[in-house]
Simulated scan of single mutants.
Amino acid sequence: MLDTDWSDSWRGAFRIELRAEAIGLAWHGWPVLPGTFPATEAGTEAWSGPVPVHHDWADRLTVDPHEIAQWWSGNPYSLLVATGKVVDAVEVDVELGKRAARLLRATGHPAPIVATPDGRWLFLTTVADNLPEKLATSGEVRWHGEGSWVPLPPTPFQHGVVHWRVKPDVWGWRLPEADVVHSVLTRALDQNVGADRSQLVAAASAA
């Protein structure tokens, strides 16, 4: 259950907010689609996160605000964006995300960043052909490209709401180049490896 009042009146107000956000993203050319949301009925399966409502979602993609408005006319569907078309996303944990965000700020070119209630950060970029090998094989990074999707604010989870760490209007809705963000994430990953090695050396010295 979502840790808030999931009453009919709250559900209606939240649906309106989700609908407005979906329409706004569509005006900027982002292919959004409706996703599942936390169930409220007793005895239903535990909800593990949003997935597209329609099995043929890839064939329904559109940026038509009027059609998108219809999708959110009845239910407070989660707000998802299809990746691999206009936007890609690189998913990391909080600690790696914080290091990468600091490095991006230092360059003066912050990327749009989404945070989920389950401790994941999503760095949004232009579409890429692949992920650099070091990131792809690290075990700490997940790339969302063609055929995938990610949740956008204010999608509800069972224990919170997806929110922006850095909003896209900070960049004037111009997505940063994927290779730039990939490079910064690689540097942040190297910092983590260096920190882990330092801790191991310190632990060995104290033994």
Rank of each mutant, 00 (worst) to 15 (best):
27 W>M: 02
17 E>P: 00
14 F>M: 07
26 A>Q: 04
9 S>V: 15
10 W>I: 14
34 P>V: 07
19 R>I: 06
24 G>P: 02
16 I>A: 14
32 V>P: 00
17 E>G: 02
15 R>Y: 11
21 E>L: 02
8 D>N: 12
31 P>S: 14
18 L>W: 00
34 P>H: 05
24 G>Y: 02
21 E>M: 06
31 P>N: 14
17 E>T: 13
12 G>S: 14
23 I>P: 05
21 E>H: 07
17 E>N: 08
21 E>T: 10
15 R>I: 09
35 G>W: 01
13 A>D: 12
17 E>F: 08
35 G>E: 03
23 I>Y: 05
33 L>D: 05
33 L>I: 11
20 A>D: 14
21 E>R: 10
36 T>H: 04
18 L>M: 07
20 A>M: 07
10 W>F: 13
35 G>H: 01
14 F>C: 09
15 R>S: 06
23 I>E: 09
24 G>W: 02
11 R>H: 09
25 L>N: 01
16 I>H: 10
23 I>F: 05
11 R>M: 15
22 A>K: 02
22 A>G: 05
34 P>A: 10
15 R>W: 10
37 F>K: 01
27 W>Q: 05
20 A>T: 12
14 F>A: 14
35 G>S: 04
10 W>M: 12
36 T>S: 14
16 I>K: 10
32 V>E: 00
35 G>V: 03
29 G>M: 11
13 A>I: 06
27 W>K: 06
14 F>R: 14
22 A>Q: 04
28 H>Y: 12
23 I>L: 05
36 T>K: 03
17 E>L: 13
26 A>W: 04
27 W>T: 07
32 V>L: 03
24 G>S: 10
17 E>W: 07
35 G>Y: 01
36 T>A: 06
36 T>M: 05
13 A>L: 13
14 F>P: 00
20 A>L: 10
19 R>W: 05
27 W>Y: 13
37 F>G: 03
36 T>G: 10
28 H>A: 08
14 F>Q: 11
29 G>P: 03
17 E>I: 08
16 I>G: 01
35 G>L: 02
32 V>I: 04
12 G>T: 12
8 D>Y: 02
